[in-house]
Amino acid sequence: DENEERIRAFALYKGIDPEKARELWERGEINKDDEEKAWREYK
């Protein structure tokens, strides 16, 4: 689903483990601007 892809995109963008990215996502600790930037680059 799209959230999974967004988490993966963010992990790649930040160079972090996707599981770590998922934890940040679930806790609401992902910066929305960074997340959008990562998503645009990923697509």
Rank of each mutant, 00 (worst) to 15 (best):
A11K: 00
E23Q: 11
N31L: 09
R40D: 11
K20S: 10
E5V: 06
E41I: 09
A11Q: 02
D1L: 12
D34E: 15
E19A: 12
K43P: 07
E19F: 07
I7W: 13
F10G: 03
K43S: 11
P18K: 10
D17C: 15
A9W: 08
G15C: 15
E5R: 07
I7C: 12
G28Y: 02
A38M: 08
E29V: 07
K14H: 14
I30P: 01
W39G: 02
E23F: 07
R40G: 07
N31R: 07
F10M: 12
E36W: 06
K20T: 14
G28I: 02
E19S: 10
D1R: 12
E23I: 13
W39E: 04
E2Y: 14
E29Q: 09
N31S: 15
D34V: 05
I7K: 01
R40E: 13
N31T: 14
A11N: 00
L12N: 08
G28R: 04
E26M: 12
A11L: 01
K43E: 10
E19C: 15
D33K: 07
E29Y: 07
D17V: 05
E36H: 03
N31E: 10
E2V: 12
N3A: 13
E19H: 08
E2H: 12
A21T: 00
E36F: 06
I30F: 11
E5K: 09
K14M: 15
R27C: 10
D1T: 12
R8W: 14
E36Q: 05
A21D: 00
A9S: 04
Y13D: 03
K14Y: 15
K37I: 11
E36K: 05
R40L: 14
F10W: 11
D34G: 02
E29F: 08
I16K: 00
A21G: 01
E29H: 05
N31A: 09
E36C: 14
K37F: 08
R8V: 09
A38G: 05
E26R: 09
D17L: 11
I30G: 01
K20D: 10
K37G: 05
L12Q: 14
A38R: 02
N31I: 05
R8P: 01
E35I: 15
A11G: 03
L24F: 05
R40I: 12
K20Q: 14
N3L: 15
Y42W: 12
K37S: 08
I16T: 01
R40V: 10
A21C: 10
K37V: 11
E4V: 07
R8E: 06
E41Q: 12
N3E: 14
